[in-house]
Amino acid sequence: MKSVVWGMRHWLKTNQGIGVALCLLSGSLLLYLYLAPWASREMRDGFTLGFFPILGTTAMLACALVIVVDVYRNDVEGGVELGRPSDILIVVAFLAACYVFFLASLEIGFLLAAPVFLFASMQWLGLRPWPLAAGVAVAMSILIYAGFTALGIQLPSGPLPF
């Protein structure tokens, strides 16, 4: 039983396993496009509106099918082999942190949100000592804000008067 589970886990990491997942994804997208009413709408030049989106999706499906059956089907890419399930959580955490920083900068301004984001991220990634991280976070935030302002690009200022 253990060997079956291990074999299944290994297969999911191979090009073939990922190719099957890609087939399902692109196949679903193709079906959605095919059934969408706008896709079959004919334009004045006789072209259907969905021709190119369907062409792109069909090409994606065809490539995914080739990945499933070609000579590299049993290979495992280095990045996939080293991957762990927890990677997904870490990547989502990074993306969420970036989005929270963005929302915060809209609310309280870039100059207040950026040092907090930079300091927290640097600490999370292991930059020590903390006074160095704090100094870099504040200095870089001011530098970036000044640079963008000098270029005429206004970053969110929030409640601050500048």
């Binding site: 890609l22 792109g56 994606m60 065809a62 080739v66 590299y72």
Partner: peptide, 17 residues
């Protein structure tokens, strides 16, 4: 891997539409 290069191009074609 040819199929992966072409898959990338196909995604670009789809996103471009």
């Amino acid at each position: 891997h040819l199929a992966k290069g072409m898959l990338s191009a196909a995604i670009g074609l789809y996103l471009g539409t």
